[in-house]
């Protein structure tokens, strides 16, 4: 059996008395697509930030490709292997889309401008906004901005992609174009860790669902099992609410 690309081991995180993560363990195998869902404040986004060392945690450990995040001496290098997409896109507003995408390949990976631009154009084309490359982020629609942010992460050619509620800040019309890009990524075999409330996407794309509540993983099962019959009452209640909007 191959080693998981991300191994989360009993991670606990306290925010001054508030337990944000309470002994979370999760394996992400190469090529797997895991959707994390749960009510707000359940620690989903916090968990993602622990994986690439953006959020320091008190105990437990996360291994990315065998390297421990807490003991890691070179976090920037570790982060190159973990792409991250944010709810509010977080493109740099003072740089053009192309410069947004080429910044890290040039500065963090040491590619030349020519190499970086070539890669950037390839991935911008892949997310379907190559024609927007020279514009500033604010000139793009929300959906286009999020696709640019996905291209920014992809250009570093990470081993895992993490999505933190990538469609939550978008109009319903634009959600589709972002989900399509994510679906294409999944089809190409990208390992994905996705926090989302898009249950349709989860059902279609994910192969595992993790349900979190109050900083714990309450339920972790295959997609069909989860949607057919959630094991816990809490998950059932959540699903009812989110699917039926009651």
């Amino acid at each position: 059996m191959t080693q998981p690309i991300v191994a989360i081991r009993n991670v606990c995180l306290d925010y001054g008395g508030f337990r944000a993560l309470d002994g979370v363990s999760l394996d992400v195998n190469v090529g797997s697509r895991i959707v994390i869902c749960g009510p707000s404040g359940s620690g989903k986004s916090t968990l993602l930030r622990c994986v690439n060392g953006l959020e320091p945690f008190q105990s437990g450990e996360v291994f990315v490709d065998g390297v421990g995040v807490r003991t890691c001496k070179d976090l920037p290098k570790l982060r190159l292997g973990v792409g991250m997409v944010f709810q509010h896109f977080e493109l740099y507003p003072h740089l053009s889309v192309l410069d947004n995408v080429t910044l890290a390949p040039m500065k963090a990976k040491g590619l030349s401008r020519r190499e970086a631009e070539e890669k950037a154009r390839h991935y911008l084309d892949r997310v379907g906004i190559l024609d927007q490359a020279d514009k500033f982020p604010a000139r793009l629609s929300g959906g286009q901005q999020q696709r640019a942010a996905i291209a920014r992460a992809l250009t570093l050619e990470p081993k895992v992609m993490m999505f933190d509620e990538p469609t939550s800040a978008l109009d319903p019309e634009m959600i589709g174009e972002v989900l399509k890009v994510m679906r294409d990524l999944a089809r190409d075999g990208m390992t994905m860790l996705v926090v989302t409330h898009e249950m349709g996407f989860a059902r279609e794309v994910a192969d595992e669902i993790v349900f979190m509540d109050k900083g714990r993983i309450v339920e972790h099962s295959g997609v069909s099992a989860f949607f057919a019959a959630p094991k816990t009452a809490r998950a059932r209640e959540f699903l009812d609410r989110i699917l039926l909007k009651i």
Partner: peptide, 10 residues
Amino acid sequence: QFKAALSTGL
């Protein structure tokens, strides 16, 4: 913005 920049390995 800080998180995004760090997450890309800067």
